[in-house]
Design a protein around this nucleic acid. Structure first.
Length: 502
RNA sequence: GGUCCGUUCGUCUAGGGGUUAGGACACGUCCCUUUCACGGAUGAAACACGGGUUCGAUUCCCGUACGGACUACCA
């Protein structure tokens, strides 16, 4: 029998959700949607020292922005509530105690300082310290202490942690959906801390207990967790849950665009692109940019992210969320890390921007304009820009008379033909009754023909006269949008000023 | 250092024992166009290296190199 599909995204509220985290959430979500399963959101806030105010809301808002909906978890509730680990604190201790009673875990009284010191001396001798089957017999714990001594220490309020008694010689192997069989020997695994001295569980314990209790079927997470997966297997084994253990899929990492290492916040500053879905304000007041605020459309972000480490095996590049539900599969995720190339994200943005309707874009980005005019403007610029806010910028530029003129163009193109052509055009402006692109073009053609001047001789100079710059969108449509009066005024001004620049 | 994972154009990747090694981004050229952009066409551009296995390896195996993750009472 196969378990119902239940996946979870389980971030820590330690700051802004990284874009790699969004991808992890996305892959989880895609699997859930594809297989008719449930998507859970669990907040792993077991480290009180790293808790950051606002991070949880940020996570929820970011997921909702990209269109990942949560079926169960923080913010929406569900049968396994609470979904915040700090609120589940008490139960983890019960599970830890179970392991203690079964002899699978033990109390340890060594302080962090003592352990750090040991690590340091060992390291200076070129070897590494491990709290394991051999060293635990020499350290300060309930295995070396008598039962009475242990009890006395605990009753005296001495701080302790609970560690897993990792078996000395055991081959651990598990099948990762992405990496296939992974083998690790238990001798390379530490007796990891399960319960910290503040009474909170570590990630390892909380994660395994919760995934079991919440009946998670697939654990899809970043590759940084691969080394601790064997430990988790050991934990499932210790609890006797191995037969219902979730399947694992460790995702390849998102790497720096250049150089080595995984993508980090620093790369954003260096490369001038966001690594967070939404703008984030640090506790110190500084801000980090977000994809949303930079003008990335959520469809583009999703498509871009989905393709970083996964592909459908066809030549289709554009995928809506619904299409991803269909096409996605864990098996087609590849193993190696993917460099984060913002150019691809920009390209996707451009593609999705073009797909938006003029009407929608006009309403959203040119709200101050009369709808008909706004749509014309959108139409004029939509295919020329990468980000929607550029439309707003271009629109204001178009509707503002030029203050300066591109002198390079003026000096090479301002000649008698251009001057006469523009003058003639200006003089017949009055006669154009219906001031629309086609009629404007027709009239201009006619006038130039009368004078025996070729279009090419005049067009660029006309553009400079009207907009100040030598390149831009369709001029006839631009004039239509400016309106007859504005065109006339701009030409008047240009005719007076241009000769001085030529 | 140790453990684990990985390696196809600059980047994201398809492919897979015999292929002109395919696509996309970026880049070059051309076409379209009043210009720029869009679009279309086209070009340059890759199987890390060394050994096996094999009639034949980029593909399978083993090493090496390189890269990455992890190595906390952080997740």
């Amino acid at each position: 029998m196969t378990k119902p599909v239940r996946v979870r995204f389980a971030p820590s509220p330690t700051g802004a959700l990284h874009i790699g985290g969004v991808r992890t959430a996305l892959y989880n979500y895609l699997l859930a949607k594809q297989l008719g399963g449930k998507m859970l959101l669990r907040i792993e806030d077991t480290d009180q020292t790293r808790f950051v105010e606002g991070a949880e809301n940020y996570i929820i808002e970011a997921l909702s922005w990209v269109g990942i909906t949560i079926d169960e978890g923080v913010g929406v509730g569900g049968p396994h509530a609470p979904y915040r680990q700090s609120e589940r604190k008490a139960m983890y201790m019960d599970y830890a105690m179970q392991l203690i009673h079964e002899g699978k875990a033990y109390y340890a009284f060594d302080t962090s300082e003592e352990l750090d010191a040991m690590r340091q001396t060992l390291e200076s001798q070129g070897s590494a310290f491990q709290y394991n089957a051999v060293t635990r017999t020499k350290l300060n714990n309930s295995l070396t202490l008598s039962e009475a001594e242990t009890k006395a220490k605990i009753e005296a309020g001495e701080p302790y942690v609970i560690r897993l008694k990792v078996p000395a010689k055991e081959e651990i192997r598990f099948k990762d959906i992405i990496r296939d069989w992974v083998h690790v020997h238990s001798s390379t695994i530490d007796d990891k801390v399960l319960m910290k001295s503040d009474g909170m569980p570590t990630y390892h314990l909380a994660n395994v207990v919760d995934d079991h209790l919440m009946e998670i079927s697939h654990v899809i997470r970043g590759e940084e967790w691969l080394p601790s997966a064997p430990l988790h297997i050991l934990l499932y084994r210790a609890f006797g849950w191995e037969s219902t253990m979730p399947q694992f899929a460790h995702l390849p990492l998102l790497l720096k665009p250049e150089g080595n290492g995984k993508l980090s916040k620093r790369d954003a500053d260096l490369g001038g692109f966001p690594v967070f879905p939404l703008e984030w304000t640090n506790p110190d007041g500084s801000k980090a940019m977000g994809f949303r605020e930079e003008g990335y459309l959520k469809e583009a972000v999703i498509n871009f992210l989905a393709f970083l480490g996964w592909n459908p095996g066809t030549e289709q590049e554009m995928f809506s969320m619904d299409e991803l539900f269909e096409a996605f599969s864990l098996e087609r995720i590849n193993k190696s890390g993917a460099k984060f190339d913002i150019n691809k994200a920009k390209w996707y943005n451009q593609q999705y921007l073009k797909l938006q309707s003029d009407e929608e874009l006009a309403k959203q980005y040119l709200p101050d304009f009369e709808s008909d005019k706004a749509q014309k403007i959108v139409h004029l610029f939509k295919e020329r820009v990468t980000f929607p806010q550029e439309i707003t910028k271009e629109a204001t530029a178009l509707l503002t008379a030029p203050i300066t003129y591109d002198e390079a163009v003026v000096s090479s193109k301002w000649n008698n033909d251009a001057k006469n052509g523009i003058l003639a055009f200006k003089n017949v402006l009055e006669k154009i009754e219906n001031f629309v692109a086609d009629d404007i073009k027709h009239t201009l053609h006619e006038e130039l023909e009368k004078l025996g001047i070729k279009m090419g001789k005049v067009m660029q100079m006309l553009r400079v006269a009207l907009t100040g710059v030598g390149a831009g969108p369709d001029l006839m449509l631009s004039m239509e949008i400016m309106g007859k009066k504005e065109v006339e005024e701009r030409l008047e001004k240009a005719i007076n000023q241009l000769p001085a620049l030529a």
